[in-house]
Structure formats: structure tokens, C-alpha cells
Simulated assay, not measured.
Amino acid sequence: MKKKVVLLVVIALLTSIAQESLGQFSFSNLFGGKNQTRKRKTFEPYSSVSLGIGTSSYYGELSPYNRFIQSTINGMRWNAAFNFTRQLSPQFGLRFGLTWARISGDDNYMDGVSGYEANFMRNLHFRNDIKELSIVGQYDFVPTLKGSPRRASIAPYIFGGIAVFAHDPVAKPETPLYPDEWVRLQPLHTEGQGLPGYTAQPYSLISVAVPLGIGVRYKLNHNFDIGLELGYRFSFTDYLDDVGGNYAATADLAAQSPLSAAMGNRTLERIAARTGKDRTAGVIQYLTNIGIYDPNNPVDPFTSSFIVPGFDGNGDNKRGSSKYKDSYMLTTVKLIYYIPAKIKCPPLR
């Protein structure tokens, strides 16, 4: 239902852009009629390009939606963007964008967080570089009555559209296996995707998202603006983080490779691979709380003799949830250049 509402909003916005653009057109324009002269005096379409940098945040199994502020801050990374915008009418424009954004998440942010002890015990992490191509409609709240030189000093706007992106989640293995390396997760079949006996197929590394957002531009001079933008991407995949279903049986993953087995279930790793932090205290606390560890008779909790409910490697336990798709949010500061409508040539002598 949530996805249908988002798509309806995007369709409505793009439809409004089309209607507004057609409203600027008359058949008399084809023949150089009076209407063409009059319209050109009120508004001239123009183009701009922009370069931007900013932050990125991911939301999903390793960065819960119901801890939105903490999730936004904990896994914050970077993004860089290039955009070309064609202003079609005083208030509507069409924008084409290229964005490169890095996102990340880590269960170890949940160390000591009440209600998320199982997330900490799961001990998964990832990072993912997203390469996004988008087309969005942009609505300015303040109209530009003529060309770009007459644009408003401050112009807030909203936007919405569609994006296609490539992604490839990676993670760090336990140090003794591959020191200081990041390995691709999708080929490891970490949830049994594509393996005999499993119905799920490997997830695609190409997906679609719906960008929606707000922004504001401030006029610096005749040709340049500076802008600030906040954009949220509703993706159509649950595997930006390589997590979305059940654990695969450890024996099935081990038949593929030791690395597949190690990356599929990471609960018995003493050291958090990404941060290098010792997990012993948090794991003992979790095992004590669920009643399978006696602190009066301490033993090493990082052994296969500990069969932890929910993480026992038999393939029946949930590793993630498919209830909500993954998403990401970008904040961008950008420099905007308005392409001159006409290039004046020096007079011939």
C-alpha cells in the first residue's frame, strides 16, 4: 500500500508538469504567430547544470526505521551528484541526474541498546556503493516569470520521479580469513539464494527507486545559485544490505565455500570485523539474559558448543525481514550554473 501511494504521488507530479508545459504551447507557435511573441516575452525556457556533495543514510534490517534519527546518524556516509535541469515553464522543470552514494550499516551499533540485543548478536555489517540514474519532475513554489536572470533570490521546491541504480553490497570477513579485505556478498549466497533446496534466487544488482524530496536555491549572481536538497529514495529491493530472509543451513553454505559459511552466520565472531571491537561482554550479557550462560561458571562463549536459539545454523531461523524494503536518504549541497540562453558574438569589423 505504501509503495502504491508513493507511485501515485510521482505520477501526479509528472502529470502536472506535462499539463503545465502543454499550457505554455499553442499551435500558433508553429507558424510564428503573435502568441509566440507574447509568450517569449513572459517566459523563456532555460537550462542549468549542477555539481553537489553531501551525506547518505541507509534504512533497513541493519539500521531500523523505528530508530530513524539514530539510523540516520550512525551509518552516515557520502554522496556526489551531477544534474542537468531543463526549466519548461515558470514553475516546472525536468531534471536528469547521476549520483554516486555510499551507504552502510552495522549490527554492532546496537551494543547495549535495549530491545535490540538480538540484532547485536547477529553481528552483520555491510557497505554498498550505489550508482544512480534518475529523472525527476521539479516544482518551484516561486515562479520565474522570464528567463533565468530574473529568477527569484530564494526558491524553495519539491521533486519526485524514478531512478534506476546499480549496487553491490560488500563486507569484511573475520580477520584470520581475509585480513583487511572487503568481499562481495551476493556471490556467496548468504541466505542460500540459488542453492539446491532453496526457492529464493540470487537478488539482482540492478534495481529501481522512487526519489521524493525538497530543496531550496539561493541566487549568488547572474549565473550561479547555491542549493540545499534533501531526497529520500524508496527502493524496490530488500537487499541493499544483503539481508532479507532466513539463515541458510551452515552445512549448505560450507559446501559452497568456507567463506560463504562464515559470512552467512557471524554470531560466534569474537571481534567485530568492521570496527575491531571485542564483542565478549555484549555476547555474554545476551546469553545470560536468555538463560543459556551462567556467569558464575564462566566459559568461552565463542565456541560451536553454544547452540544459540535463533542462530543455530539449521536454516529455519530469520536473518532479516521482507516486511519493508530498504531505502536511503541523501542530503546534498550543490553549486548550480545557469547556461546562457544566447551567446553574443563580438561585432565584425
Score class of each variant (00 low, 15 high):
Y46N: 08
I17T: 11
S50W: 02
K34T: 06
T37C: 05
A12D: 01
M110Q: 10
T42P: 00
R38C: 06
F84D: 05
R77N: 12
T55K: 03
L22T: 05
S63K: 09
Y109L: 09
F27K: 11
N66D: 12
G93A: 15
T55C: 02
L22W: 12
S47H: 08
L94D: 01
N79G: 12
D106P: 11
N108H: 13
S21F: 11
Q36W: 04
T99A: 02
G75H: 03
A81C: 07
F68Q: 01
N29L: 10
T37K: 14
Y65Q: 05
L30P: 03
G93K: 02
L14F: 02
S63T: 06
E20I: 03
F92V: 04
E20S: 15
P90D: 05
A81Y: 00
G75S: 04
G105T: 09
S71D: 00
R38Q: 15
S104H: 07
S89A: 13
Q19T: 05
T42R: 13
N108I: 09
L62N: 15
L14Q: 07
Q24N: 09
Q19D: 05
Y65P: 01
T72C: 01
V9W: 00
L14D: 03
K39W: 12
Q91D: 12
S16M: 08
F43Y: 10
R95K: 14
I73K: 11
Y58E: 07
S21D: 03
P64A: 05
A81Q: 13
W78T: 04
L88F: 08
L51T: 02
L14A: 07
G32N: 03
E61Y: 09
F82A: 15
D106H: 13
Q24V: 00
P90G: 07
Q36I: 08
Y46E: 07
A101R: 07
E20L: 10
N79W: 08
P90Y: 12
F92A: 01
V49Q: 04
S50H: 04
I53A: 15
